[in-house]
Amino acid sequence: MSAIEISNLAKTYQVGFFRKTEKAALKNLTLEVHEGEIFGYLGPNGAGKTTTLKLLMGLMFPTAGTASILGRPISDPQVKRSIGFLPEQPYFYDYLTARELLEYYASLSDVPAKERSSRAQRMLDRVGLGGAANTQLRKFSKGMLQRAGIAQAIIHDPKIVFLDEPMSGLDPIGRREVRDLIQELNDEGKTVFFSTHILSDAETLCDRVAVLNRGELQGVGVVADLLAETVGKREVIWEGASTALDALGTKVKIVGDIARTVIDDRQADAAIDAIRHAGGRLKSLMPVQGALEDYFLKHTEPGAGAEVKSE
């Protein structure tokens, strides 16, 4: 069974007061997320990531299309028992202590009363806030709030966890901690769907990713497959005869006696022959490692997709 199934989901906003115009925030999104995977939902600001999450959480209503979670339509209240959600830049009831907050959310998720307190403490320990359990949230730093946010998203032991920009605004240590936590959740068998524009996090964590731009899906798949689109190139390093590859028309960088350039895969044989022929000595011929960033930039450059409002 799919964890999440989205079919032709669309959301259009009415903007303007007197002369209303329509702005499409999400266009015919079709997507499937498998159970047990870490799925990265990538896109620049305003791509429609938060809109998608709000539609899945039932905070907004789609203009068209359908979506289901664990086989049930998103409008079914039962779905909410199986999901946890961390909104972007979360803000919580700051008059509550961390423990009170978690106990409150546990009660809203129908966690039995006798389990709430122990579960809240366990979750706080897990996200490293065990020592701040009785501190009011108004005294929390941004990183602590983010961790409390993750704790509230998993307090009821959901099967799927939705995280909207979970690393946003965190320092490198905080990001690392959140990344480890996402991996741990996945190791426990939970499906994790998280939106981000920090590509290195997605590349490290995700089994599959989808790239969204201006409300339109640009691509979805296993990270390695997507990267294959951006590779097909090799880096050549040779010594002496620095002009040997001038005929290929590539830009050559020369440091001392060493020359370096990047060529297409199909030019590899010709390049080896040319270097030998010119009296140079080949030192290295390595495939270029593709980066998610290349794929992302290729699919999210200005002008790609139609104009949309913000997320």
Binding site: K80, L86, P90, Y91, Q152
Partner: peptide
């Protein structure tokens, strides 16, 4: 405004 509602309505709360 503070988005606290998001974490409430994403639970089994109607």
């Amino acid at each position: 405004d503070k988005k606290t509602l998001y974490t409430v309505l994403s639970r089994p709360v109607r």
